[in-house]
Design a protein around this nucleic acid. Structure first.
Lengths: 106, 106
DNA sequence: ACAATGCATCAAGATTCATTGATCATTCAA
DNA sequence: TTGAATGATCAATGAATCTTGATGCATTGT
């Protein structure tokens, strides 16, 4: 089971940070239905190209999406394996069984 | 199935934002094992009280934790139901079946 | 009643993040 | 080869976030 703290706390925080923005949630919502090129996204989300490019980079750096250049276009798609990592991370938040513990000494 | 976009995009982004910080991940890691008062957390995480209080507020505002004042102490604990919401949200990121779609018209 | 403890909150400063417009590189079509 | 289209990147500005130290407020023990 993954733990939130530990060696890759930073990577975990980066993952969640990538999800912590409404524009990026919109992007992912689009990509859920399959890969899309940037022009389709600017079209669907009604936003500036440079803005979109910025957010795509954040998502890509976090590992949530990947790109596939094809000719003049670049298609973006969700990285399913990273989504599964995310599921594990969130699942690891579930409270473990409560054990008896010493009273606070502070 | 929840959708990332839509009515509560903002709330979703707030949830993920609360998770997008290493200190807050550390806090949650502690709370996984049961409720803790602030003094225990400052102790365990070796950090300033005011800093911790700030992050606890972020987590609480997002709904991830709740507090229970008892005498001189305030105990914090994870909100399991919100963790389950989170699981659903992450699960909703999974790519749906790819359908044939028109070529990009841009 | 007084002092001490646990914790929230505020103000100030530093840092990070997001937005916008401009520019550049690459690809394709005429 | 010239020009248009796709998309990345950079610089500048503004906004949000985090940190730290100070202050204030309950609650408890003496």
């Amino acid at each position: 089971m993954p733990t939130l703290s530990g060696k890759n706390r930073a990577k975990t925080a980066e993952l969640f940070h990538a999800l912590a923005d409404e524009t990026r949630l919109d992007i992912l919502d689009q990509l859920k239905e399959g890969e899309r090129c940037v022009c389709e996204l600017t079209d669907a989300l009604q936003t500036g190209q440079s803005r979109l490019s910025f957010h795509l980079k954040v998502l890509k750096d976090a590992g949530l999406i990947h790109d596939r250049p094809e000719g003049r276009w670049i298609y973006y798609a969700i990285n399913s394996d990273v989504v599964e990592e995310l599921e594990d991370l969130v699942a690891s938040l579930k409270t473990v069984k409560k054990t008896v513990r010493p009273s606070p000494r502070c």
